[in-house]
Every structure is written in C-alpha cells, then in structure tokens.
Amino acid sequence: MLEKIFGKKTVVAASSISDRMTTVKSKHIPAHVAIIMDGNGRWAKRRNLPRIAGHHEGMKKVRVITRIANDLGVKVLTLYAFSTENWKRPKLEIDFLMKLPGEFLSTYLPELIEQNVKVEMIGNFDMLPEHTKKAISKAIEETKHNDGLTLNFAMNYGSRLELVESVKEIVALVADGSINPEDIDESLIGSHLMTAHLPEPDLLIRTSGEVRLSNFMLWQLAYAELSFTDVLWPDFDEICMLNAIEEFQLRNRRFGSVEGNGDV
C-alpha cells in the first residue's frame, strides 16, 4: 500500500483505496450497516472548539460514509443521529442539532438524488421542530422512488420506546379480536417495529471508543456483528469504513449454530 506519513496521520493514495474497495466488493457485503456516530463533542473539545463545531464536522462525514456505502453496494445505512435521551442536553446544542438535517439535506439532497439514494427516518417524527420535519419530509418525498442505498436516519429514536409502542399495537390487536395471544411470535413483533420493512443490521459500528448500544435497535441487533473503534466520528473516513467491513468479512456468522452459515 502506498502511504505517506505526516506525523501521526496517514494519507493513503486514492489508488490504494480503490484497490481495497475492489477486493471488499468481491466478498460478502453487509446488506445493512448501522452506525452510532459518537465523539463529536470530544473532537471539538480537543481543538478548544464549542461542541456544535464537532456536530457540524460530523455532519460532513455523513456525506463521506454515505458515498462509500453506496459505492460498496450496502443496501441500508442507518445512522443514529439523535436519541430520545438527547433531549436532556443543553437547549443551545439541541437547537443546533435540530438545524443540521435541514443544512445537510439542503446542501446534499441533489447529490443524494443523483446517486439514487433513498432517504428514510425512524423515530418519533411528531416531536421534532417544524423546520426539521419539513426538511426530512422533503428529502423523503423527493427520493421515495430511488432504489439504491437507503439512508435511514434514526432521529428522536429510542429502542425501548419503539418496543413499548410495538407491544401496545399488538395488545390492541388482541383486544379487538384481530389476533389471538398464541399468534404473537418474533415475526409479529418485528412487523410492528419501525424497521419492519428493512433487513436487520448485519454490522453495527460505534465510534469514539465507547462499547455499548445506548438504546439503539436492541431487537434488530440481536445477531449483528459489532465493531467498535476509538476513532471519533468527525475523523471516521473511507479507510475506517473499509476497516470495519473487512473485519466483518473475516468473521464466521453462526446465528446460534455450531458451524455458521459459511457466507463470510
């Protein structure tokens, strides 16, 4: 691999990235990659910048990772953008975070359309500010016929709340006689989740060195491969994405069996 070393940073030649992508694409690509984008605040703090500067830099990486995921043939990319717990943060930070979808989509929506990317969202939509809902709704509407990568934003999302709402829906079906309690199984529960129309994640990536799920897709991640990196989200780039997928391709996914499925 052609590399130029400048201090602690490594700049990899574009040809090397292209070669690695070709090799990765020749193997099993995870259909659904989910990412907990963590470390924006720490990235800013290390540079004596306000936290919102880290969030803004992190927004740019959404474009970078969306592009490489699309190029690799990933079918769904779910990004944990704002959790139900994030409302506890300072109002100034929340207000800024709620403006980022509008800024990102107003800047990059034409590019997403050109790349055949379909924008979706999971989470409690109604609680979002009007300007945030307007930006997301516009992107969903203008990309609804695209059939390439699905860029799925988890906004105002919490997995426990999702499961609670799923249970409420199923209880209502039992109460009105539409189904019997004996009809409740994993498939039925899954069909009432926000991700019912999507494949379950094959790979979860969490940046910034934290090793926990933070109330993210707890049901859906039951058999996902987990990849944790110390890299902060604003520094997560194409090389980091390739590293995670290459690691995924080396694993033997057993799904509870002894031998595994032999796909990877």
Rank of each mutant, 00 (worst) to 15 (best):
K9M: 10
G190W: 01
I29Y: 07
N48D: 14
W87A: 04
S257M: 09
A244D: 01
I184E: 03
R253M: 10
Y157L: 02
L105D: 05
T66Y: 01
E169S: 13
T132H: 08
F82N: 07
N116S: 10
G260K: 05
R67W: 04
R42W: 06
R47N: 07
R47C: 09
N116L: 09
I245E: 06
V171I: 13
M21W: 09
L2T: 14
R42Q: 06
K27I: 05
G73C: 04
D263N: 11
H32P: 04
N48R: 14
I68F: 06
F125E: 06
P101D: 07
S166D: 04
G41V: 04
E182I: 12
D147M: 08
G7M: 10
L149D: 02
N86Q: 12
H197C: 03
P90N: 06
M155R: 03
L79D: 00
I122A: 05
L204C: 12
L188M: 13
N215S: 06
M155K: 02
Q249Y: 10
L97C: 11
N146W: 05
K138W: 03
L109F: 08
Y108N: 10
P129N: 08
I136P: 03
M155Y: 10
I136D: 05
V11A: 08
L2I: 12
D176F: 02
R251D: 10
H56I: 13
T66K: 04
E259A: 12
G260S: 07
S159V: 11
T78W: 01
L198Y: 02
K9A: 09
A53Y: 13
F6V: 15
E182P: 02
V64W: 06
Y108H: 14
E246N: 15
I113V: 14
Q115K: 15
T22I: 14
D176K: 13
Q220M: 10
M127W: 04
Y80K: 03
W87R: 04
T107I: 02
M21Q: 15
E225S: 15
T150S: 08
A139Q: 03
A196I: 03
V164A: 11
L97S: 06
S214K: 00
K60V: 05
N48V: 10
R160D: 08
V174C: 08
E186M: 00
D95Y: 09
E182Y: 06
A154W: 01
L232M: 15
E141I: 07
H131K: 13
M194I: 00
M194K: 13
F104Q: 00
P201N: 10
I184D: 05
E111I: 12
V74E: 06
R212F: 04
R253F: 11
P201C: 12
D147V: 12
G256F: 11
V264S: 13
G7K: 13
S208W: 09
K133W: 05
G177M: 05
H32I: 14
F153L: 15
E93D: 11
E247P: 00
F248P: 09
N252D: 15
L151W: 01
V164N: 04
R63S: 05
A196R: 12
A139D: 02
L100N: 07
E142C: 09
T207Q: 11
I170D: 02
K45A: 13
F216H: 03
K25V: 07
W87S: 05
N261D: 15
